[in-house]
């Protein structure tokens, strides 16, 4: 079977980069020959060990659940507030200073305050992550709302489209590129913060596992968890973000 040319070059580039990085890692590990720098082989063996005999699957599922919940809350609330700020200049004026403060409060402070005020509970962990992410979603969606083409909204008004139709068929599609940018950056930020939240105040999840591995100075274990989690994030990218990319590109030149 002959593969199309663009697929061959795509595979060559993607697989080539992964193979080259793996080879570099393995040879560096051989050269350095230190327990602080485990080889790729020992990391893969560690993945296998934690996967089969440890709590890796359970911890990853727990972390993913937290990531998903915080992500949905942050995107929904951030999206709604961002649209309101972009559309209503008075609301924007009233909330702009608060937004700047929220953007600049360190993630660690929010996490600690949430744990102190609400206790070491699941809701506090998820709230802490969502509060950290909401301001960046607000900023992106607000900027997107400001770029919405008023000429197209005028078409909706002239042809008396219902508010729902105007929102979903005319307004929202113009925000898709901003929503996907917020979602992509959101996911990467959220899973990093979730690990800190777990490290500080939960007794399960990838963050908790990494803390335990750190206490045993199990570097291969730490890298194994990172490796497994990155793979899952890549899978999410392929399964969820790529199809959304296609939706965003709908009707663009050359489609």
């Amino acid at each position: 079977m002959i593969l199309p040319k663009h697929l061959v070059s795509f595979l060559l580039v993607r697989v080539g980069i992964v193979v080259a990085l793996s080879a570099l890692w393995q040879s560096m590990a051989w050269l350095i020959a230190s327990p602080d720098f485990p080889s790729l082989y020992s990391v893969i063996k560690s993945v296998q060990f934690h996967f089969n005999e440890g709590d890796m699957v359970n911890n990853i599922l727990i972390t993913l659940r937290r990531v998903l919940l915080s992500f949905i809350i942050a995107m929904l609330l951030g999206g709604i507030i961002g649209i309101m700020m972009g559309v209503n200049s008075l609301f924007n004026k009233l909330t702009d200073s608060l937004l700047i403060i929220m953007l600049n409060i360190p993630a660690l402070v929010t996490i600690l305050l949430c744990y102190i005020w609400f206790g070491l509970v699941e809701a506090a962990a998820i709230a802490a992550v969502a509060i950290n992410k909401i301001p960046t979603v607000v900023v992106m969606i607000r900027e997107g709302t400001r770029t919405v083409d008023k000429d197209l909204l005028a078409v909706a008004k002239i042809y008396k489209l219902s508010a729902t139709k105007t929102f979903f068929s005319v307004f929202l599609p113009q925000l898709y590129p901003f929503i996907i940018a917020a979602a992509r950056s959101g996911l990467s930020l959220i899973w990093k913060i979730v690990l800190v939240v777990e490290l500080l105040g939960r007794s399960d999840g990838v963050g908790f596992a990494l803390n335990t591995l750190f206490q045993f100075f199990d570097i291969a274990g730490i890298l194994a968890y990172t490796f497994a989690f990155v793979m899952i994030i890549l899978l999410i990218e392929i399964l969820f973000f790529k199809p959304f990319d296609k939706l965003v590109a709908r009707g663009a030149c050359g489609d």
Partner: peptide, 15 residues
């Protein structure tokens, strides 16, 4: 009321 504008003002993401 129908309105035909200077620019066609079609939604680019719709066929």
């Amino acid at each position: 009321l129908g309105y035909i504008f200077q620019q066609p003002r079609l939604m680019p993401w719709l066929t």
